[in-house]
Amino acid sequence: MSLTAPASFRVAEYRLRSMWKWRNSIIAFGVGNPVLYLVSIGLGVGALVDANSPDGVTGVPYLLFLAPALLATAAIQAGQDEVSFPTLAGFIWNRLFFAMRATSLSGGQIADGVLLAASVRIIFTTTVYWLVLWAFGAVDLGSALPLIGVSTLAGVCWGAVALALTSRAKTDSTYISVMWRLVIMPMFLFSGTFYPLAVLPLWLQWIGWISPLWHATELGRWLSYGAPLEPWQALLSTAYLLALGATGLLLGRRTFEARLTA
């Protein structure tokens, strides 16, 4: 790993240069997205929820309950975008990865570099998102590092999963529609994002248990306002995210190299 690191940095350098071309959209989306969610759901739905449950959701105002989930969602979706689009481009649209593999780079180094650059985007997105949350009074100043940290972890680990999945995609349109409709949206809706997971019938709760978003949200609520979480649960959730990320990266690297040398 220590030997391959510099080479993957060079791939990340290219990815960041490419991302820089999209900086206006990235910034606009990074700020616009949380503002829209907070105004519509945080404040709008929140007013309704809080009016009907004076004790709040699990004991806190809805906005506080929602904030860590939204932050983790933003991180995961940033990871998904920033990994899957460059990967589809590299394998299908302009086949640039094949040109990169003709240099001294290996497939694994290209995979590492893509994830590394996506991590930079994830940190940026979560930081901006946290700032907007803070401006809306949804998080405390003290929660900055732990919340941004845990969301980034979730985003990067999901990015690694996306790396493994996207690198297997044969066609872009199928991949995009399947991923967004059957993976990202259900994850967003059924991971205890808008209400505690326990509210769902048991036969739907498994979506949350396997969802990195739910684990990140549980950790986030604990770190943000001290929602009850047993230490073993915190450990388990962290370990789950790390395991997901490690598996994704390992499989992703392998598929990259195999596909570029087939």
Binding site: P6, R10, Y14, K21, L96, M100, T103, S104
Partner: peptide, 26 residues
């Protein structure tokens, strides 16, 4: 290597394509 398909990054400029490719070699 000059592959059959150009495999250039069409979003980058001419100069940036050369620069990033050179950087892949370190």
């Amino acid at each position: 290597v000059v592959p059959q398909q150009d495999t250039l990054d069409t979003e980058l400029t001419v100069r940036e394509n050369l620069l990033t490719y050179g950087r892949y070699f370190g």
